[in-house]
């Protein structure tokens, strides 16, 4: 019997800001030619936007609220089991990540999670690509401070091998968008999808700075 030995929710943050987005970074193909960590700080401007560490960090703090919301964080757990619910409890059916993030054996994500949401409360939310980040690129959100999470996202070797352009593009991924369409009864992230895209782009375009803490 291994009750509760999996994951503890580390509430490093006030409950109010503990939120979720799911599976943000797992899906993009590894097409980058980038060999090194990050190109965020290589030029002064990006798309005509001036680097601005204060504004960038400010934007990230909003990004952070979304990423730590249950709709995002539940599929970016610290352990190998996804989380469920607004209280981030360990997924009831004891499912695990598996090497490619799609679950294992008779407990694969798509065995229950359909291409679209199932009607009704507490039914599995749907997405054609439903999965966790793969085992070799776990992209953990749970338990990360704003600084840790920002540095992780900016780090080419930890962010799914995405360069800046790919990161900017990533906000349009179906598994990012799904956070705002999680089926009945689930609290959405704390801002609209378009507001999220704006702060995401602003954070990156203004230099992708990490907060001090």
């Amino acid at each position: 019997m291994k009750l509760h030995s999996e994951i503890k929710s580390h509430n490093y943050l006030p409950g109010k800001t503990m939120i979720v987005l799911t599976l943000v970074f797992s899906m993009i193909a590894l097409t980058s030619s980038m060999k090194y960590k990050s190109d965020f700080h290589m030029s002064d401007t990006a798309d005509g936007v001036k680097k601005d560490s204060i504004e960038s960090v400010k934007a990230f703090m909003k990004v952070y609220e979304v990423l730590m919301s249950p709709r995002c964080m539940n599929c970016h757990p610290a352990g190998d089991a996804p989380l469920q619910g607004d209280d981030n409890h360990v997924h009831t059916m004891n499912v695990v990540r598996g090497p490619d993030g799609t679950g294992l054996y008779a407990a694969k994500c798509s065995n229950c999670h359909q291409p679209t949401n199932v009607p009704g409360l507490h039914t599995p939310p749907g997405n054609p690509k439903w999965q966790l980040p793969p085992a070799n690129m776990k992209m953990v959100f749970q338990g990360k401070s704003p600084r840790q999470l920002a540095l992780q996202i900016m780090n080419y070797n930890l962010n799914g091998h995405r360069n800046k352009a790919q990161l900017l593009e990533h906000s349009k991924d179906t598994l990012v968008k799904v956070a705002w369409n999680m089926g009945e009864g689930r609290t959405p992230p704390p801002m609209s999808y378009s507001a999220f895209v704006n702060v995401w782009n602003e954070w990156i375009n203004k230099g992708g700075y990490a907060p001090k803490q």
Partner: peptide, 26 residues
């Protein structure tokens, strides 16, 4: 039985933990 059949197809030598991870949805 249908769940166990998938487990054994993909993992011919499951440990107790493998079994728990495959069968907790039943």
């Amino acid at each position: 039985i249908m769940s166990a059949a998938v487990l054994l197809r993909e993992n011919p030598n499951p440990t107790d933990q493998d079994i728990d991870e495959a069968m907790s949805g039943n």
